[in-house]
Amino acid sequence: MSTTAEHAEHPKFLAHHFYTPGQQADSAKLGMWLFLGQELLFFSGLFLAYATYRFFYPDTFLEAHHHLSVPMGGFNTVVLITSSLTMALAVRAAQTSNQKKLIWNLVATIAFACVFLVVKYFEYSAKFHHGFLPGKFYTGHGIEGLPHLFFGIYFVMTGLHGLHVIAGIGVLIWILMRSKRGDFSAEYFTPVENVGLYWHLVDLIWIFLFPLLYLVK
Protein backbone atom coordinates (compact mmCIF):
# COMPACT_ATOMS: atom_id res chain seq x y z
CA MET A 1 0.00 0.00 0.00
CA SER A 2 2.95 2.25 -0.45
CA THR A 3 1.77 3.59 -3.73
CA THR A 4 -1.08 5.85 -4.65
CA ALA A 5 -0.52 5.51 -8.38
CA GLU A 6 -3.52 3.78 -9.88
CA HIS A 7 -2.09 2.13 -12.94
CA ALA A 8 1.58 1.64 -12.31
CA GLU A 9 1.25 -0.76 -9.39
CA HIS A 10 -1.65 -2.85 -8.26
CA PRO A 11 -2.30 -1.97 -4.59
CA LYS A 12 -2.73 -4.92 -2.26
CA PHE A 13 -6.40 -4.22 -1.59
CA LEU A 14 -7.30 -3.96 -5.27
CA ALA A 15 -8.91 -7.14 -6.66
CA HIS A 16 -7.42 -8.45 -9.90
CA HIS A 17 -10.50 -7.79 -12.03
CA PHE A 18 -10.70 -4.07 -11.26
CA TYR A 19 -8.49 -1.54 -12.96
CA THR A 20 -8.57 1.27 -10.42
CA PRO A 21 -9.32 1.56 -6.68
CA GLY A 22 -12.00 4.08 -7.63
CA GLN A 23 -13.78 1.52 -9.81
CA GLN A 24 -13.63 -1.01 -7.00
CA ALA A 25 -14.91 1.42 -4.36
CA ASP A 26 -17.77 2.61 -6.60
CA SER A 27 -18.79 -0.96 -7.35
CA ALA A 28 -18.78 -1.94 -3.70
CA LYS A 29 -20.85 1.08 -2.74
CA LEU A 30 -23.40 0.57 -5.51
CA GLY A 31 -23.67 -3.06 -4.51
CA MET A 32 -24.28 -2.07 -0.93
CA TRP A 33 -27.01 0.38 -1.87
CA LEU A 34 -28.73 -2.30 -3.90
CA PHE A 35 -28.46 -4.64 -0.94
CA LEU A 36 -30.06 -1.99 1.27
CA GLY A 37 -32.79 -1.61 -1.34
CA GLN A 38 -33.63 -5.28 -1.11
CA GLU A 39 -33.55 -5.06 2.69
CA LEU A 40 -36.17 -2.32 2.53
CA LEU A 41 -38.36 -4.43 0.26
CA PHE A 42 -37.90 -7.32 2.67
CA PHE A 43 -39.22 -5.24 5.56
CA SER A 44 -41.87 -3.61 3.39
CA GLY A 45 -43.88 -6.83 3.50
CA LEU A 46 -44.04 -6.53 7.27
CA PHE A 47 -44.96 -2.86 7.14
CA LEU A 48 -47.76 -3.74 4.73
CA ALA A 49 -49.01 -6.49 7.04
CA TYR A 50 -48.91 -3.99 9.89
CA ALA A 51 -50.86 -1.41 7.88
CA THR A 52 -53.45 -3.97 6.80
CA TYR A 53 -54.22 -5.21 10.29
CA ARG A 54 -54.11 -1.79 11.85
CA PHE A 55 -56.68 -0.76 9.26
CA PHE A 56 -58.76 -3.88 9.95
CA TYR A 57 -58.55 -3.71 13.75
CA PRO A 58 -57.69 -0.15 14.87
CA ASP A 59 -59.16 -0.64 18.35
CA THR A 60 -57.10 -3.75 19.03
CA PHE A 61 -53.94 -1.96 18.01
CA LEU A 62 -54.73 1.03 20.19
CA GLU A 63 -55.57 -1.17 23.14
CA ALA A 64 -52.68 -3.59 22.79
CA HIS A 65 -49.94 -1.01 22.29
CA HIS A 66 -50.49 0.22 25.87
CA HIS A 67 -48.82 -2.99 26.98
CA LEU A 68 -45.55 -2.10 25.25
CA SER A 69 -43.11 -0.13 27.38
CA VAL A 70 -42.58 3.32 25.87
CA PRO A 71 -39.67 4.18 28.23
CA MET A 72 -37.80 1.03 27.23
CA GLY A 73 -38.57 1.48 23.53
CA GLY A 74 -37.66 5.16 23.75
CA PHE A 75 -34.40 4.36 25.54
CA ASN A 76 -33.54 1.85 22.83
CA THR A 77 -34.29 4.45 20.16
CA VAL A 78 -31.80 6.83 21.77
CA VAL A 79 -29.27 3.99 22.06
CA LEU A 80 -29.54 3.10 18.37
CA ILE A 81 -29.37 6.71 17.20
CA THR A 82 -26.26 7.22 19.32
CA SER A 83 -24.75 4.07 17.85
CA SER A 84 -25.38 5.50 14.40
CA LEU A 85 -23.40 8.57 15.46
CA THR A 86 -20.44 6.51 16.68
CA MET A 87 -20.61 4.50 13.46
CA ALA A 88 -20.49 7.68 11.38
CA LEU A 89 -17.52 8.85 13.47
CA ALA A 90 -15.83 5.50 12.85
CA VAL A 91 -16.17 5.96 9.09
CA ARG A 92 -14.77 9.47 9.40
CA ALA A 93 -11.88 8.14 11.45
CA ALA A 94 -11.12 5.57 8.77
CA GLN A 95 -11.21 8.26 6.10
CA THR A 96 -8.68 10.32 8.03
CA SER A 97 -6.51 7.28 8.86
CA ASN A 98 -7.10 7.80 12.57
CA GLN A 99 -6.55 4.23 13.71
CA LYS A 100 -7.24 4.74 17.40
CA LYS A 101 -10.43 6.71 16.91
CA LEU A 102 -11.66 4.16 14.38
CA ILE A 103 -11.23 1.27 16.80
CA TRP A 104 -12.81 3.04 19.76
CA ASN A 105 -15.82 4.19 17.77
CA LEU A 106 -16.36 0.67 16.47
CA VAL A 107 -16.16 -0.70 20.00
CA ALA A 108 -18.69 1.91 21.14
CA THR A 109 -21.05 0.99 18.29
CA ILE A 110 -20.86 -2.68 19.19
CA ALA A 111 -21.46 -1.83 22.86
CA PHE A 112 -24.56 0.22 22.03
CA ALA A 113 -25.86 -2.61 19.85
CA CYS A 114 -25.46 -5.00 22.78
CA VAL A 115 -27.26 -2.60 25.12
CA PHE A 116 -30.12 -2.51 22.62
CA LEU A 117 -30.36 -6.30 22.68
CA VAL A 118 -30.24 -6.48 26.47
CA VAL A 119 -33.10 -4.01 26.78
CA LYS A 120 -34.98 -5.96 24.12
CA TYR A 121 -34.43 -9.12 26.14
CA PHE A 122 -36.07 -7.56 29.19
CA GLU A 123 -38.96 -6.31 27.06
CA TYR A 124 -39.49 -9.76 25.56
CA SER A 125 -39.32 -11.39 29.01
CA ALA A 126 -42.08 -9.13 30.26
CA LYS A 127 -44.27 -10.08 27.28
CA PHE A 128 -43.61 -13.76 27.86
CA HIS A 129 -44.41 -13.34 31.52
CA HIS A 130 -47.81 -11.78 30.79
CA GLY A 131 -48.58 -14.24 28.01
CA PHE A 132 -48.66 -11.48 25.38
CA LEU A 133 -47.50 -13.86 22.68
CA PRO A 134 -48.30 -14.36 18.99
CA GLY A 135 -51.23 -16.31 17.66
CA LYS A 136 -52.19 -19.50 19.40
CA PHE A 137 -49.63 -18.96 22.18
CA TYR A 138 -51.43 -15.88 23.41
CA THR A 139 -52.54 -16.40 27.01
CA GLY A 140 -52.70 -12.80 28.19
CA HIS A 141 -55.72 -11.07 29.69
CA GLY A 142 -57.23 -7.67 29.64
CA ILE A 143 -56.98 -6.69 25.97
CA GLU A 144 -60.14 -6.49 23.86
CA GLY A 145 -60.24 -7.62 20.24
CA LEU A 146 -57.54 -9.69 18.56
CA PRO A 147 -54.36 -8.90 20.52
CA HIS A 148 -52.71 -12.14 19.35
CA LEU A 149 -52.47 -10.59 15.88
CA PHE A 150 -50.89 -7.42 17.23
CA PHE A 151 -48.31 -9.37 19.18
CA GLY A 152 -47.73 -11.64 16.21
CA ILE A 153 -46.80 -8.61 14.15
CA TYR A 154 -44.87 -7.07 17.04
CA PHE A 155 -42.72 -10.15 17.56
CA VAL A 156 -42.08 -10.77 13.86
CA MET A 157 -41.13 -7.16 13.16
CA THR A 158 -38.97 -6.57 16.21
CA GLY A 159 -37.61 -10.12 16.04
CA LEU A 160 -36.44 -9.76 12.46
CA HIS A 161 -35.03 -6.36 13.31
CA GLY A 162 -33.24 -7.94 16.26
CA LEU A 163 -31.73 -10.55 13.94
CA HIS A 164 -30.45 -7.69 11.81
CA VAL A 165 -28.91 -6.12 14.91
CA ILE A 166 -27.18 -9.42 15.71
CA ALA A 167 -25.93 -9.68 12.13
CA GLY A 168 -24.77 -6.08 12.48
CA ILE A 169 -22.75 -6.94 15.58
CA GLY A 170 -21.20 -9.79 13.60
CA VAL A 171 -20.02 -7.61 10.73
CA LEU A 172 -18.94 -4.86 13.13
CA ILE A 173 -16.70 -7.34 14.95
CA TRP A 174 -15.28 -8.44 11.60
CA ILE A 175 -14.56 -4.80 10.70
CA LEU A 176 -13.07 -4.21 14.14
CA MET A 177 -10.67 -7.12 13.70
CA ARG A 178 -9.63 -5.90 10.29
CA SER A 179 -9.16 -2.41 11.70
CA LYS A 180 -6.87 -3.75 14.40
CA ARG A 181 -4.88 -5.49 11.69
CA GLY A 182 -4.47 -2.10 10.05
CA ASP A 183 -6.37 -2.86 6.85
CA PHE A 184 -7.99 0.55 6.54
CA SER A 185 -6.62 3.95 5.77
CA ALA A 186 -7.53 7.06 3.82
CA GLU A 187 -6.74 5.06 0.67
CA TYR A 188 -9.01 2.15 1.40
CA PHE A 189 -11.97 2.21 3.75
CA THR A 190 -14.87 0.89 1.65
CA PRO A 191 -15.75 -2.01 3.98
CA VAL A 192 -16.04 0.36 6.95
CA GLU A 193 -18.25 2.64 4.92
CA ASN A 194 -20.47 -0.20 3.73
CA VAL A 195 -20.92 -1.68 7.18
CA GLY A 196 -21.77 1.85 8.28
CA LEU A 197 -24.46 2.09 5.61
CA TYR A 198 -25.92 -1.22 6.77
CA TRP A 199 -25.87 -0.11 10.39
CA HIS A 200 -27.69 3.12 9.56
CA LEU A 201 -30.38 1.09 7.82
CA VAL A 202 -30.84 -1.08 10.91
CA ASP A 203 -31.15 2.10 12.92
CA LEU A 204 -33.56 3.63 10.42
CA ILE A 205 -35.89 0.63 10.45
CA TRP A 206 -36.11 0.87 14.22
CA ILE A 207 -36.91 4.56 13.92
CA PHE A 208 -40.00 3.52 11.96
CA LEU A 209 -40.83 0.53 14.13
CA PHE A 210 -40.79 2.50 17.36
CA PRO A 211 -43.61 4.98 16.60
CA LEU A 212 -45.65 2.43 14.63
CA LEU A 213 -45.69 -0.10 17.46
CA TYR A 214 -45.20 1.92 20.64
CA LEU A 215 -46.91 5.24 19.90
CA VAL A 216 -50.25 4.24 18.33
CA LYS A 217 -52.86 6.99 18.50
Binding site: P134, G135, K136, L149, G152
Partner: peptide, 17 residues
Protein backbone atom coordinates in the same frame (compact mmCIF):
# COMPACT_ATOMS: atom_id res chain seq x y z
CA UNK B 1 -43.90 -18.94 11.05
CA UNK B 2 -47.63 -19.18 10.49
CA UNK B 3 -47.42 -22.91 9.84
CA UNK B 4 -45.02 -23.71 12.66
CA UNK B 5 -46.16 -21.30 15.37
CA UNK B 6 -49.67 -20.30 14.28
CA UNK B 7 -49.28 -16.53 14.64
CA UNK B 8 -52.52 -16.05 12.74
CA UNK B 9 -51.41 -13.52 10.13
CA UNK B 10 -52.85 -15.57 7.25
CA UNK B 11 -55.35 -17.62 9.25
CA UNK B 12 -58.98 -16.44 8.89
CA UNK B 13 -59.95 -18.40 12.01
CA UNK B 14 -57.76 -16.06 14.05
CA UNK B 15 -58.70 -12.85 12.28
CA UNK B 16 -55.93 -13.06 9.70
CA UNK B 17 -56.43 -12.48 5.99
Amino acid sequence: IERSLGIGIFDPAMGGD
